[in-house]
Design a protein around this nucleic acid. Structure first.
Lengths: 121, 121
DNA sequence: GGCGGCTGATTACAACTGTAGTCAGACACG
DNA sequence: CGTGTCTGACTACAGTTGTAATCAGCCGCC
């Protein structure tokens, strides 16, 4: 599967939240913090189409865009990539690492414990 | 902190494992699967120097290269980035996600539970 | 003492990415 | 019916990355 850049990912998120949308609608919903022009959004959409991660159907002279890959699949691929690259593919060192770095609160720990308990049964 | 590409990361790993090293030594230790030329390795070293993630000391007319950032710090940054981008910065959804995707064996679960227990005490 | 080999420095170049401008066609309003 | 507007397509351009080649200097060997 193709890789997706940071900016492109913003666009994907919009469409994973709500689809199908026109280019203008996507532009409206993209987080404003980057101050993108509509043209930039359209470029993103074209590239994502070319990469095969978006699909489009024609509606009059416009396109309606929708994701062609599931968010879960993409997220799985990217987390797997990080895990492979940094932790030899093993999750435990990641958890240990984040715990050390204070990215884990007590509430997180409780939550993960509950999750693991559910997984075992 | 500067970002490091995939190929550059390979070079960093060599030096995190063993330092200081000369360019030729790094080239010897880089995993062979990409079939890099020594020139390519030298380019990586220069760029990593420019990015400030490597340091060098002169030894005669050569450099000895060593990491200027800790592996842990870089790994923390990158895992934080993924977590922020994909899971709103929260670890639990990542664990849940990987569990669903069968990236978690029973042994992993036991291991993480032990880790969490240790964290709480 | 000249020549091959090694060194870092500089340059090359294509693909990808972020950010946008231009263009030709359709459409909608006055 | 003309004129501005919106659309996707195409083009632009700088920065990053992967992958190297070239260059000028030094060093040891014949």
């Amino acid at each position: 599967m193709e890789r997706i850049g940071d900016a492109e990912y913003r666009v994907m998120e919009v469409l994973w939240d709500e689809a199908p949308l026109t280019a203008a609608e996507v532009a409206d919903r993209v987080p404003a913090d980057r101050g993108w022009s509509i043209r930039t959004v359209k470029t993103m959409l074209s590239r994502l189409l070319a990469k095969g991660v978006l699909a489009h159907e024609e509606e009059g002279r416009r396109y309606l865009y929708r994701p062609a890959i599931a968010r879960e699949d993409y997220v799985a691929q990217e987390s797997g990539r990080l895990l492979d690259r940094m932790f030899g593919g093993r999750l435990t060192p990641l958890v240990a690492h984040l715990a050390e770095r204070d990215r884990l609160s007590d509430a997180d720990i409780a939550e993960i414990e509950a999750l693991l308990k559910a997984l075992k049964s």
